[in-house]
Each structure stands twice: as C-alpha cells, then as structure tokens.
Design a protein around this nucleic acid. Structure first.
Ligand SMILES: [Mn+2]
Ligand SMILES: [Mn+2]
Ligand SMILES: [Zn+2]
Ligand SMILES: [Zn+2]
Lengths: 218, 218
DNA sequence: CTTGACACGGTAATAATTATCAACTACTTT
DNA sequence: AAAGTAGTTGATAATTATTACCGTGTCAAG
C-alpha cells in the first residue's frame, strides 16, 4: 500500500526542466521543451507526473484564478502576481502575510487549510507594448487565443474580397449582390468583421475595408 | 458606438436568479434553475449575458483558483473561502485587507490592478460527512466527477462477474482462464478495480469481489 | 416600411485536463 | 532464474467548461 514512486528517466527530465525555469511554466510549455530531449514522450506523461510530483511534494502546483495550472520548483511559502494580458506569473514576497490570517470567528465553520493571495495587473512588457499600439482599443478581449485573431470564415473572406475590389465605401446591398449572399447574412458578417477591425464604416450604412483587412486577405 | 444594452426578458430572469441566491452559483447551476422559468433559453445565452452583465458592472464574476467561474450579486469589495471537497463558496469579510496592499518596491514593474485573497478548507457539511465515512481513505481524489465512480469498462465487468462466481479469493490466472482474457490484461484491470474499491486482495496475489463490487454489477 | 444594431437559440469548436488501455519495466517472491 | 505483480508509459479517447459561429428574430430610428 505504500505507493513508492520510481524516479524514471522521464520524471528526472521533467523535474530538471522545472528546476531550471524561472517562469512558472504550464504543462504544455514544459511538454514543448521536454520534447527536445525526449522526442517520444507523451503529453499525458507530463501531466501525470506533474500531478504525482506535486502530490508528493517535489514541486508546487499553482492554481491561478480560472486558468491554466502552472508549476513551481520553489517550495517555500510565497505568493504570486500575474499579468491579465499575457498571463505571465511572477513571485511576490509578502512580509506581513500573517496579518491575512482569518480570525477564528470569521471562518463560517470551515476548517481552514490555507490562504492564497493573488495580485494581478499588467506586466512591464505588456505595458511597453500597449504604449506603441494605442489605437486598437479592444473593449472586449476576454476571449481566448484565436478568437481575436484575424482568422476568417468562408463567408467573411468572400465579403472582404468583394470590399477590396470596391473603390470606396458601399452598402450591404451592393455587397450582397457582388457575393451572391443574402443581405441579412452580409450584415451579420459585417458586424463580425467590424469587431475584428477588418472593415470600418466611414459613413453610416457604408462599409470599407481597412488596412488590417487587406493584410488579412494576403 | 455607445453599446447600449437592452434589458431583455432573459436578462431580467438571469439577474433575478442571481440576486436571490446566496451560494455564488456557476453558469450551469443558473441555467438549470432558469430553465424552469424559461424552458427554451439556451445555455449560450446564459453564458453570454453573465459575461456582459459582469463587464458592465451589474454583477460580479468570481475566478476562484483553477475551476468553474461563479457569479455574485454583491458588488461590495469582499473576499471568499471555498471548500476543496464540494467547491462551495462563501463570503469572508476581511477587516485588515488594506495591509495586504503591495509595497511599491515589490511590484516587479507591474501596474497592479488588484488583489484577491482566497481562503480554502473544508466546509461544515463536508466535515460532518467525512466523520461518518472514515474508512474510504481515498488518497487520490483529485479527479473529476465520474472518475472515482463505479462505471465499468467491458473487460472490468467481465472480470468482476467472474470473481462474483468464485467461492473465495482466486489468482489472476484463474480469472484469465474463466474470462478468455490474457493474464496481463487481467492484472492490469484488477489494479483499476482495486483502486475503485470493487475488489480487494485478502491474501497476496489472490483477489475477491467486495460488497461495493457486487453492488456495481447490479 | 427599411435598415441596422443588438440579441437569441442551437450547435460546433476549442482548450485544458483526465481517463482508458495495452505494452513495457523493474522489483519481489518463489 | 522464472514468475508474478506493482508501477509506468505513449497513444488516444473522453470529458468539462467555455466560447465561436450563424441564421433568425426584435426593436427603435429615420
Ligand atoms: Mn513562485
Ligand atoms: Mn460573495
Ligand atoms: Zn504581460
Ligand atoms: Zn464542502
């Protein structure tokens, strides 16, 4: 019953890779790096062993609010700050952490096992980046990876190509005629394209392709 | 461009349902409750509107460490404690929260946007429950819903049925003979069944079906 | 009455993780 | 040494939570 765990070659390499990283890597980041040393390793093995090693106290598993788990070789008690834009995670040493301890009369009957303090904000690199690119205001960037990207559906590409051929702004009816799509479908897709910044509306109800839109076609 | 949001019937019902709940519900919990009033509503609509309403400040979105998002009608600043067993979330009022503020020289260049304090432990109900059921020690219960359940694969069921017919404990070779499975496969599956508590090993290398195992077959 | 912005329901797709399983490896016990 | 067995692996399927897509519907303004 004593569940002894073997230190296999895979585990050694995984542990090694964590120990040499300062960035609190995710499972798939580790997998990408480890593949260079063990090309035949499976992603499942990486996940499996990260779980086992964190359970047995060899490494630390970080569960940052609502996103990918990250792993930390540093077993000493410390807290973290993460970037809400690029999701990078850095260490924070909180001197007066003990003040955060929960008064016994406040615990609502819970047996308190621990406390996590998490700061969030914008990391230096992302601050620098957003200085340059001030224009794309992007009210809603809460979506994942590809969502905000310039990937086009079939219909969107068709519409965009039609717009690219126009001299100047034209209405959705013109586009519908040029593309053999229904007017309703066109307006639906135009909305999506505007959100992506690939078309804009210089005059009400008239649309034109933007620079970004032309780039997206190539 | 002013992005006015309509108060549709769906939104009213969703908002209403959040306001009357004290448990920080998840999107799908809300969906289940709302379906009783609006049977035709789509889960996507619930997700969509929870996102929109939290963005526009009507409700609060909680991102508790590495799991489902929860929603809170209480817009005042407060923190939370969650149960690591049943994932329930309760409010915590932290008087000296200001002490947690990050000293400017510690921020590693981040523009700090906020701080979350999260307690975790075992809620009163789960404590009470684990008093009664002391035996199932379950070292590894980190897996989700069905994982620890009694669901059987084809082969596992076959093995279990063979074991049920035996008077007393028998070795994996006997089982292999009785089931037309390879001995190796048998030992592989026995391990899984032991983990689920459906078989046990009264003597080394001999296996027998447990009470739970018999239940699982019916 | 059109038009277009916003919204909806249904469903497909995605991302991260976990489960399943046959094959393999390395200890233990005979 | 042979056999038996616990632990491990790689490949792949499955699951969970969430988001994207799309055709259609609604409503308010011109
Ligand atoms: Mn750290
Ligand atoms: Mn709350
Ligand atoms: Zn960043
Ligand atoms: Zn609980």
């Amino acid at each position: 019953m004593q569940k002894l765990l073997r230190m296999t070659h895979q585990r050694e390499v995984i542990l090694d890779e964590i120990k040499k990283s300062s960035t609190h890597p995710t499972a798939d980041e580790l997998y990408e790096r480890i593949k260079k040393k063990l090309p035949r390793i499976s992603l499942a093995t990486v996940y499996r062993n990260l779980e086992i090693m964190s359970e047995s106290g060899l490494i630390n598993k970080l569960e940052i609010s609502g996103r990918q788990k990250r792993f930390d070789w540093d077993l000493d008690q410390h807290d973290h700050i993460y970037c809400i834009q690029c999701h990078r995670v850095d260490n924070i040493d909180l001197a007066d952490k003990k003040d955060v301890a929960l008064p016994a009369d406040q615990n609502r009957g819970y047996k308190v096992a621990g406390c996590r303090v998490e700061f969030y904000g914008i990391c230096p690199k992302c601050s620098a980046r957003s200085q340059k690119k001030q224009k794309g205001e992007s009210k809603k960037m809460a979506c994942k990876s590809k969502c905000g990207s310039k990937e086009l559906s079939e219909k969107q590409r068709e519409i965009l190509e039609a717009l690219a051929k126009c001299e100047d702004a034209c209405g959705s009816k013109d586009i519908a005629a040029a593309t053999s799509l229904e007017p309703k479908q066109v307006s639906c897709q135009i909305t999506a394209l505007k959100k992506k910044g690939l078309v804009d509306s210089p005059v009400r109800c008239k649309y034109a392709i933007t620079g970004d839109g032309k780039d997206a076609l190539s």
